[in-house]
Amino acid sequence: MLNNYDKIANHYDTLSRLVFFKSQVNAQINQLQYIPKGSTVLIVGGGTGWILEELARVYASGLKIVYVEISAKMTALSQKRNYQDNQVEFVNLGIEDFETNITFDVILTPFLFDNFAEQRAVKVFGQLNGYLKTDGLWFLVDFSLHKTNGNWWKRLLLKSMYRFFKLLGIVEANHLVDMNPYFLKWAYQILELRLYYGGFIKAVIFKKIK
Rank of each mutant, 00 (worst) to 15 (best):
L32G: 03
G46A: 05
E89L: 15
S71M: 08
K22N: 15
T48N: 13
Q79G: 06
V41S: 07
V44Q: 01
Y83Q: 06
S23P: 14
Q79C: 04
K80D: 01
Y5G: 04
Y5M: 09
F21D: 12
Y83P: 13
V91R: 03
N4V: 07
G47Y: 07
T14I: 14
E54I: 03
K73C: 07
Y5I: 01
K37C: 15
N30F: 12
D13C: 04
D6E: 01
V68N: 01
Y12E: 02
G62Y: 09
V44T: 01
V19T: 08
E89P: 04
D13E: 02
S78F: 04
S23N: 14
E89W: 11
E54Y: 05
Q28H: 11
G47E: 05
N4Q: 02
Q31E: 13
V68E: 07
Y34C: 14
F21P: 08
Y5T: 00
E54P: 08
I65M: 10
T48P: 01
G62W: 04
L42T: 00
K7E: 08
V68I: 06
F21N: 15
Q28R: 10
N82V: 01
S61C: 04
V91L: 04
K64H: 13
R17D: 10
L93Y: 08
L63C: 07
N3Q: 00
L77K: 12
G47V: 00
A27M: 04
Q24W: 14
N4S: 11
Q33D: 14
A60H: 15
L18C: 09
I29N: 15
M1D: 03
E54M: 09
K7S: 12
M74N: 11
A56H: 10
Y67K: 12
L18Q: 12
Q28A: 10
V58S: 11
I8V: 11
L15I: 15
Q84D: 15
N4I: 12
P36N: 03
Y34F: 15
S16V: 10
Y59H: 00
Y59N: 09
I65Q: 04
K73I: 11
I29M: 08
V41R: 05
K22A: 11
S71L: 01
K7T: 08
V88N: 02
L42Q: 05
V19E: 09
H11G: 13
V66R: 02
G62S: 07
F20C: 09
F90Q: 00
P36C: 10
L2W: 14
H11M: 14
P36A: 11
E54G: 04
T75G: 12
V41M: 08
Y5V: 03
P36L: 08
I29Y: 11
L32A: 03
L93H: 10
Q24K: 15
N10S: 14
Y5S: 12
Q87D: 10
S71N: 04
Y34A: 14
V44H: 05
L55K: 11
E53H: 06
G47W: 01
Q28Y: 05
A56D: 09
V44G: 05
L55G: 09
